[in-house]
């Protein structure tokens, strides 16, 4: 009985509603957590999985040995590789393509690669303007690798302890 009376009075006097208003009222004056995007950025982890890249050794030789492990492991079947021996007798890819529309950015390719060749950079701001641009060819991937090599190497070094 007293319980019901209490409940009745509580809802009649809008107590709960005032409590809610008080809470939002407090947040009105709290510090704001907005990150003003183009000027400020949220920090990214060294493990961030963004745009793909193919890396080279410091002497300029491409790392990829066309083992096709990444092609096999890719759950989205986004990687297409064709290989042939190069003039110096080493086994190299003649075609290495990643379809970024199929890719789910799982990072398995990176994990599977025995020579750390295919990696995912922390780059996330990119776009395509024409159909077909989403196919990352070997040249494009190597160019990305060249461009971001220092960042990629730093990220690998930061994470090396856990691998």
């Amino acid at each position: 009985m007293t319980d019901r009376l209490k409940r009745f009075l509580e809802s009649l006097l809008l107590l709960e509603l005032f409590r809610g208003l008080w809470l939002t009222g407090k947040y009105f004056f709290k510090k704001k957590i907005t990150v003003q995007f183009p000027e400020e950025k949220t920090p990214t982890s060294p493990r961030f999985r963004g745009l793909h890249a193919l890396r080279r050794y410091s002497n300029g030789e491409e790392r990829c040995i066309a083992c096709k492990l990444c092609e096999v492991v890719c759950p989205a079947l986004a990687i297409t590789i064709e290989s042939a021996p190069r003039t110096d007798g080493t086994r190299r890819t003649t075609k290495y393509e990643i379809d970024l529309f199929k890719c789910i950015y799982c990072g398995f390719c990176e994990e599977s690669c025995p020579v750390d060749s295919i990696v995912e950079t922390s780059e996330m701001h990119y776009h395509f303007e024409k159909r077909g641009e989403e196919i990352m060819t070997k040249e494009k991937l190597l160019a990305i690798g060249d461009k971001y090599e220092s960042k990629i190497a730093a990220a690998r070094a930061a994470d090396a302890f856990y691998r």
Binding site: F28, K30, K32, T34
Partner: peptide
């Protein structure tokens, strides 16, 4: 603005 402030946004 006000709703944003109550969400801790600006």
């Amino acid at each position: 603005k006000v709703i944003a402030y109550m969400h801790s946004r600006i």
